[in-house]
Design a protein around this nucleic acid. Sequence first.
DNA 1: CCCCCGCATGACTACGTTGTCATCGGGACC
DNA 2: GGTCCCGATGACAACGTAGTCATGCGGGGG
Lengths: 336, 336
Amino acid sequence: MVDVARAAGTSQKTVSRVVNAEPGVRPETIERVQRAIAELGFRRHDGASHLRRGTSTASIGLVLEDLAGPFYAALTAGVERRAREHGYLLLTGSADGDAERAGRLVQAFAARRVDGLLIAPNLVGDEVLTANLPPDVPAVLLDRPSADHGTDEVLSDNAGGIAQAVHHLAERGHRSIAYLGDDERFWTSRQRRDGFLAACAERGLRTEGLVSLGVLTPERIAAAVSGWAAAGVTAVVTGNNRASVALLHHLHARTGPRPAHVGFDELDLADLLDPPLTTVAQDAAGIGSAAVDLLFERLATPTLPPRSVVVPTRLVVRRSSPPPDGASAPPVRNDR
Amino acid sequence: MVDVARAAGTSQKTVSRVVNAEPGVRPETIERVQRAIAELGFRRHDGASHLRRGTSTASIGLVLEDLAGPFYAALTAGVERRAREHGYLLLTGSADGDAERAGRLVQAFAARRVDGLLIAPNLVGDEVLTANLPPDVPAVLLDRPSADHGTDEVLSDNAGGIAQAVHHLAERGHRSIAYLGDDERFWTSRQRRDGFLAACAERGLRTEGLVSLGVLTPERIAAAVSGWAAAGVTAVVTGNNRASVALLHHLHARTGPRPAHVGFDELDLADLLDPPLTTVAQDAAGIGSAAVDLLFERLATPTLPPRSVVVPTRLVVRRSSPPPDGASAPPVRNDR
DNA sequence: CCCCCGCATGACTACGTTGTCATCGGGACC
DNA sequence: GGTCCCGATGACAACGTAGTCATGCGGGGG
């Protein structure tokens, strides 16, 4: 600005006035200053501006597990869109399953003076975050609860989504439904298992021996599938899209009758599979934008009590979930 | 720092020394300062630090078309990982097809004094970027060329990838191969079409009437497919994953013989389709990390001439590309 | 003709930090 | 004992910007 001022034959303060479109500058002065700005290629240093003004940095930080997964990608897109609507920029970082890395990201974002943090990595424990999160930086947890309930959170309706799946299968006549979940370390795995058990109990369906959580190795899948055969299972619910894909790979590689299948999490190509997969679709972008909304509300009113938003899921019925052999519910098509 | 200094009974400069782990502070002083830092919850203001030091902000900006797509998600993950290895943070923004928005993102990133920009949106013309990109901010273009060749760029080997697909089909005995591409406004659509024409010419295959570019409406797909039938086409190459999916949807909804099919762009569930889809896989993460590498090299040596990096593709042969009826090339399985 | 008011502008300072240089105390050396 | 040097520390300025207040000028009203 000093250089611009010299070139325009005015003072640095007047340049500042022009840059910020403050009133009280003569049109011809504005003109001179703008010409000097253009000639010198000047642009304001936002960091210095924020420092002097003492205002926010108009940015938020997003900590993810892994940017590349479809769920996180859609979530990030939702966050970014809503943030941009407010004129905010988005800083992103992945934890990649490393709690220490997540902690460093939180600290780095805080040091940059982001106005708030969105924290989504589900493999990382609360303790790491609470240890790194300064108390004056508002945060929203996404897709995982806050242990001490001191922060806002946005969750998918995991129990409700699983219940949609179970009720759908039960209404079509299935009486023996299995659940195949991902690693127990994921909070969502446990949450959806619990939702499965609750929904089955509500329907009076037995579940002993039909629930399997753990790392998705081919061996475990194979063991689970053969267990189902022995138990007369006619339908399966998979707890996330990794579990869905793992089961599909297993079934794809072998012949014989397939159980009806409903997968939690939408798959991009679900309707091109054979048969097209019935899924419980999560609204990842909706989770992201809801989190941004919570954050902005808290920035506006810091005294708000911690809130929890549950984003509904949607059952997309395709052809992988027909009635069991012998039953006669009419096939319903609701593809899209 | 002033508050910390008061609490620790020292000067603000000594606090700065402790925070930056500079030598020449007595251990007991360090101890006192650190206690005061912990008690007051102090953290350094990175913006002020960068301002005073005159150093870089250790951040880079990434402008994308749309964060949610699998290609951009993988690319972003590659960028973020490599940036983090260098201790850099990543600012992201989507243009969503809007050139003005892309321009605003570039300006916002530049005003934040990012050390460099990575620019990937392929629907946005060069002119908008060059109009907004300050000459002193290094930029790398991803997945699209720079018109005036003044910037570094990282491209997928579009021509080579399409050639892999054509040669693969030709070797299996196909003599009449069609190309179905996405909207001509995408540079990659045109580039891959040209690659297709070149590869076919090299093989002596005729292409008149077999190449279709445009918006992927069901009507256009249907028209193209019936045109192929009349022309005796036995194999199709689709130019990106939207085109692949559109064609698969069309074929899925109808019966009758399927042409052999190779899709440009890997699909997450390609091997679960029926038949599993042969694809030309792009290394999206590799493109991202290569771009970051170019950027850091330019930061280290600003006088470097503009460079262009081409990231190779990989043909993943699955079962959607068998020889034509009557031919007898042995089926090769190379799934993963 | 003088006074007062409002407009346009500039001088100065502070935001939080770090580089530079000065200061102070004490021990080693002559 | 005086000098020199070194380690520890502090005072001060400056990074680029914007808020505060002062200044100067011209015009309208008395």
